[in-house]
C-alpha cells in the first residue's frame, strides 16, 4: 500500500500522499466525532484545553521553529486575542463569528509591530524585546479601566445566531474544528514558498537574502502569522473559560508554549500538536496518578501538590536530555523502524 507511482508534480505535492494516509485521516475524524459520547465532562475539558493549546503552539512554532525568531511574548498575543474578543462581544455586542477573526487580526497587527525590531535584533536581544512587550501588555491589562485589571472580566458565551454553545461537548466540536483547520493551514503554509522562505531565514539568513528572499517581509510575516494564531487561541480560550484575568497570560504562559514546541519538536507541525497535548496533559496526569495512589499513600497527595511544578520541570529537563528532537523525533524513529522491520536497514 505504501508504494505508488506518481505521474505528475501535483500528486507528488499532495498533502495526503496515498490511500493509507487518507484512511487514517478519515478514522481520526470519525474518532473525533464519536469521542465526546464516551468521555465525561472532565475528560472533555482536558481535550478542549489541548485543542486551544494546539492552535497557540502552532503559531509559536511557525515563528521559533520555522523562522528561528525567538519570542518570549507569545502569552501577550494570546491575551490580546482574548481581551479583544471579550471586549468586542461584551461591550459592543459584536457576534462571535466576527469577533473571532478580529481578535486574530488585532493580535497579528501588534505582532507586525513587534516584528519590526526583529529586523535589527537577533537571539537573546530579540528574546528580551519580546519579553518586554509581554510585560507592557500585562501592565496595560492590569491598569486599564476597561479590562478591570485584577478583578478579571466576564466573557459572553459563544452564540451562533440563536444557538448558544454551553456544554463541553459542543465546545469540543467547535475547538476541534478550529484546531483541525489551524493544523491544515499551518501544514499548507510550511510547504509553500512562505514556509520555505521561513526555513531559509532560520538556516542561513545571508544566503536567503542572496536567493531573493526579503528578510524584512518574511520575518514580519512570521510574527504576524504567529500572533494571528495566538489571537485565535486567546479568543477561543476566553469564550471557553468565560472569565479572563491578566495573570493567566503572563510569562509563564509564554514559557509553557515554548516548552510545548521544544518537547513536541521544533520546526514541525506534528510536533506542535504533540507538544500541546503533552504539556497540557502532564498536570492532569499527575493529578490522576495521585488520585490512584491516595488510598495506599495518603501522605503523597499533599507532597505532590507542592511539587507539581517541580515534576513538570523534571519531565521537561528529562526530555531535553534524552530526546532533544522532541516527541516528533520519537515518532520519526518509530516510523522508520516499522517501515524497515524486520530488517535493520
Amino acid at each position: 500500500m505504501g508504494s505508488s507511482f506518481k505521474v505528475n508534480y501535483k500528486e507528488d505535492m499532495a498533502l495526503f500522499q496515498n490511500l493509507w494516509v487518507k484512511t487514517w485521516l478519515v478514522i481520526l475524524i470519525l474518532l473525533m466525532i464519536i469521542l465526546p459520547f464516551f468521555l465525561n465532562r472532565y475528560q472533555l475539558s482536558i481535550l478542549n484545553e489541548m485543542g486551544i493549546a494546539t492552535i497557540g503552539a502552532l503559531g509559536l512554532n511557525l515563528l521559533i521553529g520555522y523562522t528561528g525568531q525567538i519570542s518570549l511574548g507569545h502569552g501577550a498575543f494570546v491575551a490580546i486575542g482574548a481581551y479583544t474578543s471579550g471586549l468586542l462581544t461584551g461591550k459592543l455586542g459584536i457576534p462571535f463569528i466576527i469577533s473571532l477573526p478580529l481578535s486574530g487580526l488585532m493580535a497579528a497587527l501588534l505582532g507586525l509591530i513587534v516584528g519590526i525590531p526583529s529586523l535589527r535584533l537577533k537571539g537573546l536581544y530579540l528574546a528580551l524585546g519580546t519579553l518586554a512587550f509581554g510585560f507592557v501588555i500585562e501592565y496595560i491589562l492590569f491598569h486599564w479601566d476597561l479590562t478591570q485589571g485584577d478583578l478579571g472580566m466576564a466573557v459572553k458565551r459563544i452564540s451562533l445566531g440563536q444557538f448558544q454553545i454551553k456544554t463541553q461537548k459542543q465546545y469540543f466540536y467547535l475547538i476541534a474544528a478550529f484546531a483541525f483547520l489551524a493544523v491544515l493551514c499551518a501544514k499548507n503554509l510550511v510547504r509553500s514558498k512562505i514556509g520555505r522562505s521561513f526555513i531559509a531565514i532560520r538556516d542561513r539568513d545571508i544566503a536567503a537574502e542572496a536567493m531573493g528572499i526579503s528578510l524584512a517581509k518574511y520575518k514580519i510575516m512570521a510574527f504576524g502569522l504567529s500572533s494571528f494564531y495566538a489571537g485565535i487561541a486567546g479568543c477561543l480560550a476566553a469564550h471557553y473559560n468565560r472569565w479572563i484575568v491578566p495573570g493567566s497570560f503572563d510569562i509563564s504562559l509564554s514559557i509553557a508554549y515554548i516548552a510545548m514546541i521544544i518537547m513536541g519538536g521544533l520546526g514541525t507541525v506534528l510536533g506542535s500538536v504533540l507538544g500541546a497535548i503533552l504539556i497540557t496533559g502532564i498536570p492532569h496526569a499527575i493529578v490522576y496518578i495521585v488520585d490512584l495512589l491516595k488510598d495506599t499513600y495518603p501522605a503523597l497527595s499533599g507532597f505532590i501538590v507542592d511539587f507539581k511544578l517541580g515534576i513538570f520541570g523534571i519531565i521537561i529537563v528529562g526530555t531535553l536530555l534524552f530526546e532533544p528532537a522532541g516527541l516528533y523525533g520519537i515518532y520519526r524513529r518509530t516510523k522508520v523502524y516499522w517501515k524497515t522491520w524486520p530488517f535493520k536497514y
Partner: peptide, 9 residues
C-alpha cells in the same frame, strides 16, 4: 564559497 545551504530542507 563555504556551503551555505539551508540544512533543514
Amino acid at each position: 564559497q563555504n556551503i551555505e545551504l539551508f540544512r533543514g530542507m
